[in-house]
Amino acid sequence: TLATPAVRRLAMENNIKLSEVVGSGKDGRILKEDILNYLEKQTG
């Protein structure tokens, strides 16, 4: 899974598996926005 260290840390802090997040960046890269959108969906 393609993600920057900052995105990986954000995911780890929120107990998110990067494999569950759909990346919207180039080549499927997971962006910070993708993590935040995933969190919004989870908290509903």
Rank of each mutant, 00 (worst) to 15 (best):
T4L: 01
K32A: 15
E33L: 08
E33D: 10
Y38Q: 13
L10C: 04
V7W: 00
V21Q: 02
S24I: 01
S19L: 04
L2V: 10
T1Y: 13
V21W: 00
L2A: 05
L36N: 12
T43E: 15
I16V: 12
E40P: 11
L36E: 14
G23L: 00
A6R: 09
K32G: 09
D34L: 00
K41S: 12
Y38W: 08
I30A: 02
D27N: 08
V7R: 01
G25F: 00
P5T: 13
Q42T: 14
G28C: 02
E33A: 12
I35K: 06
E40R: 14
T1K: 11
N37W: 08
A11D: 00
I16R: 01
K41G: 14
K41A: 15
A6Y: 08
R29I: 09
G23K: 01
S19Q: 10
E40I: 07
L18M: 07
S24F: 00
V22S: 12
S19E: 14
G28P: 01
N15M: 06
I35S: 05
G28E: 03
Y38K: 15
K26W: 03
D34H: 00
L18A: 03
G28H: 06
M12A: 14
E40C: 12
L36F: 05
Q42Y: 15
L36D: 14
V21D: 03
T1L: 02
D34Q: 00
K17I: 11
K26N: 12
R9D: 07
K26S: 10
Q42S: 14
V21H: 02
V21Y: 01
A6T: 11
I16F: 00
Q42P: 13
K41E: 12
R8G: 05
N15V: 01
E40S: 13
G25W: 00
I35L: 11
N37V: 10
R8K: 15
V22R: 13
T43R: 15
L18G: 03
I16C: 07
S19R: 10
L36K: 10
T43Q: 14
G25R: 02
G23V: 01
R29S: 11
R8M: 12
L18C: 04
L39E: 09
R29W: 10
G44C: 11
N15G: 02
K26D: 12
K26A: 12
E40M: 10
V21P: 03
T4M: 02
E40D: 14
L31W: 01
K26P: 12
Y38G: 08
G23M: 01
I30G: 02
T4W: 01
V7P: 02
T4F: 04
D27Q: 08
L2R: 05
L2I: 12
Q42C: 12
K26C: 07
L31P: 02
V7M: 05
T43D: 15
G44T: 13
L31A: 05
L10P: 03
L36T: 12
G25T: 02
A3S: 08
D34E: 01
K32V: 10
I16L: 05
V7C: 01
L39R: 14
G25C: 04
P5N: 10
N14Q: 08
A3T: 12
T4Y: 05
V7L: 05
N15Q: 09
L31K: 06
Q42I: 06
V22T: 15
E20K: 08
D34N: 09
L39Y: 07
L39Q: 11
N14L: 05
T4R: 03
S24Q: 05
G23S: 06
I16M: 04
K41D: 11
R9G: 06
T1P: 04
K26M: 09
P5L: 10
G28K: 04
N37Y: 04
G23R: 01
R9C: 03
N14D: 10
G28Q: 06
L2F: 08
T4D: 14
G25V: 01
L36R: 11
Q42F: 04
K17C: 07
R29P: 01
S24V: 00
T43C: 08
Y38M: 14
T43F: 07
L2N: 09
L2Y: 09
N15I: 01
L39K: 15
K41H: 12
I35R: 05
N14A: 06
T43H: 11
R8D: 02
